[in-house]
């Protein structure tokens, strides 16, 4: 299964990923119009700063996902490839998934009473955030492809601690 990888050494905190994610998940899908929508759409990837370092926080599509086990409405489910999908229509905003995601990657949207998380831009070849990441800190592919790509790379994968 393909997933989004993050390499902390390459990120300079430009937040382009956040911006395009918000755009992609807005109603209009137009960057300069999505702020006019009600409610304003929000990014499902966030860049957190700690000192001089930036970290992208995004759904890891865990193999045995705590959010799927905690979801009392069946909104969080495994997709055909084992990815974690969020069926928003089933979500009631109980925040059980928010309570258990160890990455803090499921985001509460109190106004809509819905949780939100990365869907890897379902149906598209490459997630918008990855396409927008000029420094290639975000990378999309299978674990095997990722290992191949990073083999011999001086920067080993620095995952979440």
């Amino acid at each position: 299964m393909k997933r989004i990888y993050f390499r902390v050494e390459y990120c300079d905190g430009c937040r382009a990923c956040e911006t395009v994610c918000r755009e992609r998940h807005s109603g209009s899908r137009v960057l300069f119009m999505d702020r006019e929508e009600e409610p304003v759409s929000s990014a499902r990837i966030t860049v957190e700063r700690q000192g001089g370092t930036y970290w992208a926080v995004v759904c890891q599509h865990c193999a045995e996902a705590p959010c799927v086990g905690a979801c009392m409405t069946g909104a969080m489910q495994y997709g055909d490839e084992g990815e974690v999908i969020h069926r928003v229509d089933r979500c009631v905003g109980c925040w059980m998934c928010v309570m258990v995601c160890p990455f803090g990657a499921v985001l509460p949207q109190p106004e809509e009473r819905k949780a939100a998380k990365c869907d890897c831009c379902a149906g598209e070849r490459r997630p918008a955030c990855v396409a927008a990441c000029s420094r290639q800190a975000l990378w999309y592919g299978s674990p095997e492809e990722f290992e191949e790509k990073t083999a011999g790379d001086g920067h080993a994968l620095s995952h979440y601690r």
Partner: peptide
Amino acid sequence: GEVRGAGVLTGLIR
């Protein structure tokens, strides 16, 4: 109130 990131703390407990 704002519950965002609560799971990180649950994870730390675990």
